[in-house]
Design a protein around this nucleic acid. Structure first.
Lengths: 153, 153
DNA sequence: ATGCACCCCGTACCGCACTACGGTGTCAAG
DNA sequence: CTTGACACCGTAGTGCGGTACGGGGTGCAT
């Protein structure tokens, strides 16, 4: 019934090292270690790891997942706290979506303006990004460093 | 006319260290260094830094920005290449938006199912994440480590 | 000439989430 | 009893995008 770390790892599609990492980070409990010191996991551990994986997939960081797990442990806390976290995460995700959409719109405008032909010097995309063709600086070969002298020391 | 690193930094709202970092990473050219070894930037550098900042804001990584900049330098390349990168970035951003939307929908479904009252043991959110209330493992006090013996060595 | 702001450098560090390494110990099968 | 798979440990390295530190040297104004 009890599982080795390798079995848990395999069942969760995760590396052994990752499991040890989660343990170090306090995301999963210290498993019992009879006799030889080998970790021995109860089958429930699989669920806990899956909890972590699903939460990750929902955009929670390990830090946040740890908090979520700690809510469960001190069961004085009501379910409302959990709901609050989830709602915060939703608005966080909405912000990220919004930012991405703005990026996308800006980029779309640029690509629409660009014929896609001709030299880079006339590219409206590059122009909009701020570089009006080559810059003197970009040609200046190493004036310091490699070239010549031992200035500085 | 020529600028010190501090002036460039201030004008771009960026740290001096960051500027040196960009230089090390090949994102900005080695500035000239007359006499004392102090970096001396032409005013155009400001534009180059802004290019980087805007590109970052559009979701390009420093690595990608470097590529974008190199396209400009070897001006054999046509503007079409730039357009291609921008379009790839757009679809990349779209993918990210899509993934975030899925996260959001999943979370929204969970919060909708949750009354927000009662103990964590009955929380539909936690349940959906995979943990049906407390787990034995989460109570198990350190069975190894700190507690007792010198197994292993 | 003295003070002080500014700049130089290399190196190390941050947070995140792992991943790898290497030397050693344990278990189960043959 | 040997062999091979598996597990143990601490430490270090990865990639990203910076940020900080400390022990100096310069430039300019007073």
């Amino acid at each position: 019934m009890a599982l080795t770390i390798g079995q848990v790892a395999k069942q969760c599609g995760i590396g052994i090292e990752t499991l040890r990492f989660y343990e170090r980070e306090g995301l999963i409990a210290q498993p019992s270690r009879p006799d030889s010191g080998f970790r021995t996991y109860p089958p429930e551990s699989i669920r806990r790891v899956r909890f972590i994986q699903r939460s990750k997939a929902l955009g929670f960081s390990l830090k946040e997942i740890k908090e979520l797990l700690s809510l469960r442990v001190d069961s004085v806390t009501s379910c409302g706290e959990v709901k609050k976290r989830a709602e915060e995460k939703i608005s966080d995700i909405e912000k990220r979506i919004h930012a991405l959409r703005e990026m996308k719109d800006a980029l779309a405008k640029l690509t629409a303006a660009c014929r896609g032909k001709g030299p880079t010097g006339e590219c409206p995309i590059l122009e909009a990004l701020g570089e009006p063709g080559r810059t003197p600086a970009s040609e200046a070969p190493e004036t310091g460093r490699k070239g010549g002298g031992k200035r500085w020391q």
